[in-house]
């Protein structure tokens, strides 16, 4: 389902070239649970951004669901992102002026889904993440764990095939972190492909496949 062939992502910093991704070859099948570890600056976030079509590789081929993505234009990338990819970030990235419900609803709104279709879907998702009582609250009235679960609901509302999580527990205490992991692992159990970038060996250990990066390269890929 995900097929990276010889992917490079280089940044030009003055007259120096930073190779954030250096000839990455990775295949990930549908429904896998993959952890990505590596020291800071090793290219984990860049890899996730490329996988999520937020960033374009400098070179190489990225085939998602049988479709070559590097030749897509911005509009097509946005649509593919909307339908196939869910993102979760360390810093949640909820919109502060919108309620939990409205934050979760946002991808459906952008996709032009009718309100009467949106409402039950959002409510169901919030309930499945034990957030139904928080639906009318804004992010600043929620705990870190609750915020991240709202972000998970938002990532899931379009029923994507891939969930990309960049240090999802990085800003959370141990208990909230465990809740969040349980939530995304539950989704993986239902078939979603899950990639988790983490610094935490304990978190990484829970995945079935472990990728280790250094200096923009995959140095270990073990199941």
């Amino acid at each position: 389902m995900i097929d990276l062939q010889n992917i490079c992502r280089h940044f030009q910093m003055g007259d120096q070239e930073v190779r954030a991704l250096d000839q990455i070859d990775v295949r990930i099948e549908s429904g896998e649970y993959v952890s990505i570890m590596g020291p800071s600056g090793s290219g984990k976030s860049t890899l996730l951004n490329v996988l999520g079509l937020l960033d374009r590789p400098t070179a190489g081929t990225y085939i998602l669901d049988g479709r070559e993505t590097t030749s897509l234009d911005d509009e097509e990338l946005a649509h593919t992102r909307a339908r196939k990819i869910g993102f979760i970030f360390q810093s949640f990235h909820l919109i502060p002026r919108l309620t939990a419900f409205e934050n979760v609803e946002l991808p459906l709104v952008l996709a032009g889904v009718a309100p009467e279709v949106r409402r039950p879907r959002v409510q169901e998702l919030l309930a499945s993440l034990s957030l139904e009582s928080r639906a009318r609250h804004r992010p600043n009235e929620l705990s870190g764990g609750q915020r991240q679960r709202v972000a998970i609901a938002r990532a899931m509302v379009m029923q994507p095939a891939v969930l990309l999580a960049d240090e999802p527990t990085g800003n959370l205490d141990h208990i909230s972190g465990a809740e969040v992991l349980a939530a995304i692992e539950g989704l993986n159990a239902k078939g979603i492909t899950l990639l988790v970038v983490t610094h935490d060996a304990e978190v990484a250990q829970r995945a079935r496949r472990h990728i280790r990066m250094r200096d923009g390269r995959v140095v270990e890929d073990a199941t």
Binding site: G52, H93, M158
Partner: peptide, 16 residues
């Protein structure tokens, strides 16, 4: 800015 980034991450097009 970061809100715009988020919108793009969840699939908003330039036009939107």
């Amino acid at each position: 800015t970061s809100e715009v980034g988020l919108l793009k991450a969840i699939g908003a097009t330039r036009r939107q």
